[in-house]
Amino acid sequence: MALLSCQGIKKHYRHKHALDGLNLEVKAGEAVGLLGINGAGKSTTIKTLLGLVRKTAGHISLDESQVGFLPELARMPEHITPRSFVALALRIRGRGTSEADAALAETGLGEEHMSRHIRLLSKGLRQRVALAYALAGSPRLIVLDEPMSGLDAIGRIAALELLKKRKAAGAGILICSHIVPDLVRLTDQVLLIHQGVVKQIFPITSHDMDEVVMLEQALRHWSSQ
């Protein structure tokens, strides 16, 4: 069952075609990766799908009841504790706030950081809080824009394991990342976006280095176009 699907999505700014007829589908228990160079249209795709940016044309079908979203971070709320922040996500998803600590612990945030203001946390810890916000309450569709940004190696591995677990539990994942090995480890297919168009679709089957190399070569090819 498709949790998210879109056909012919276009987004035109005054002097630029950010998206030009994009098609995409994310089913339950499936992870789809978006890959592309800077300015290819990956973040715009995500923002358009979630209604943060208004589409110029096309059709989007989204199960709005349970969506977890981790935006590419510019800032985090500073004057609130991670516990209260994640509790908001749980309330929005109709869950009890008592799950907040468990959601934060799942991303590797220590108990001692849960009741400190977010402004006092390091970049990596903030990213864990943001990830906990997106995953709290086990949403059916998880949309992630550069989720590994600022995480250390251990944090990255833990985050990937957590996402794999969610996928295995039936959640659909749409992830946008510059880190090709992460996409290969997690996803079932990767969409290579260039100039707002899906240029190639790569099914990921073996999740090994060969697929990493193949994706990197394709990325290099399209970036030189």
Binding site: K47, L50, G51, L52, L62, E64, S65, V67, G68, F69, P71, A74, R75, M76, P77, E78, L88, A89, I92, A130, Y133
Partner: peptide, 17 residues
């Protein structure tokens, strides 16, 4: 200002909000 300029509103505008 942080919500709009710092894109913090993305967190709060998560569907179904």
């Amino acid at each position: 200002g942080a919500d709009i300029g710092g894109r913090l509103c993305y967190f709060y505008l998560m569907p179904p909000v």
